[in-house]
Design a protein around this nucleic acid. Structure first.
Length: 279
DNA sequence: AATGTCTGCAACCGCACACAT
DNA sequence: AATGTGTGCGGTTGCAGACAT
């Protein structure tokens, strides 16, 4: 993002003028020098010493999100990172800072923004698809709906709506799968590629609940603090990258076909590598 | 080419927590 | 125990660029 993206704002308090908005490279330099001298702490002293007209909070945020070493700037989330975020979000909820500790070079803000974008895309797809697709009933549609929905919901985590949106994606998926005659046929459906590899799947207590295999996560105690210079050397678990990264940008009209495209966007239709390729 | 819409992301805000006094 | 200060976190906003029409 350019330095002039945000309007520079100034206001005064008892300590003088406070600057807000985009950071200049000179300010970054001052901040970096402060951290070199004193470490990533005493943020408030930066202003009280007159080094910068920024609040301590603003300085800390700038350091954590932009200036800290080894951050991945301008690098899209990989399939592995997406999978990790999805899984951890389901596990921890919206604990972005915690989730970020499992991802090399990612900040809580990165994770938060990633998730937010993803949720928006999904919401739009659900809304559009529910308004553009008709509902067909088949004798086994309920079964298909259930497994399809649970698949999606397990990816999207506990915050996912359980009401209108749930119903709309269920309808959309069942609509595009209305040819399915029995559960065996489901395995051949491109929407459900992972069903061809049952060993990859795990089932929880509910027999219909389909979820991704659990990523062997680092124990939280094992996660090093961000200040630790070795933090980014931690080896993170790698999943088979059968989850496709988000491709394309705009999806204004969602027909049955384009919905499938969007489902692909949500990591469903990328062809699975054969199990022998995972090693 | 002009305009409208969408997306990604930097940065702010308010709240909560930890710690010192 | 109460209060003040510093820091961290999650939610939200708003802008610039990308993309579609």
């Amino acid at each position: 993002m350019s330095e002039t993206k945000r309007k520079m704002v100034h206001y005064r308090d008892e300590m003088g003028e406070i600057k807000k908005g985009p950071w200049k490279s000179e300010e970054d330099e001052v901040l970096i020098n402060h951290v070199r001298k004193y470490g990533p702490r005493d943020w408030s002293s930066i202003r009280s010493k007159g080094l910068l007209q920024r609040t301590g909070k603003s300085c800390r945020l700038r350091w954590v999100n932009k200036l800290r070493p080894n951050l991945k700037h301008g690098v899209k989330f990989s399939a592995e990172e997406e999978t990790t975020v999805i899984d951890l979000q389901a596990q921890f909820g919206n604990k972005w800072a915690k989730i970020a500790t499992y991802l090399q070079g990612r900040t809580d803000n990165d994770v938060k923004n990633f998730w937010s974008s993803r949720q928006k895309r999904l919401a739009r797809i659900l809304l559009t698809s529910s308004s553009s697709s008709s509902i067909k009933s088949s004798k086994n549609s309920k079964e298909v709906q259930t497994s399809t929905f649970h698949h999606v919901s397990s990816m999207e985590g506990p915050n996912f709506s359980q009401s209108a949106e749930e119903e709309s994606i269920t309808k959309s998926c069942s609509s595009s799968s209305s040819h399915i005659e029995d559960s065996e046929t489901i395995k051949k459906d491109p929407l459900m590629p992972e069903l061809a590899y049952p060993s990859l799947l795990s089932y929880d207590q509910s027999p219909n609940y389909l979820s991704f295999p659990q990523i062997p996560l680092l124990q939280p105690d094992f996660a090093l603090p961000l200040g630790d210079p070795n933090f980014f050397d931690v080896q993170l678990p790698i999943m088979p990258s059968f989850l496709a990264p988000v491709k394309g940008k705009k999806h204004d009209s969602v027909t049955s076909d384009s919905f499938i495209d969007d489902i692909g966007m949500y990591d469903l239709i990328e062809p699975l590598p054969s199990p022998s390729q995972w090693a």
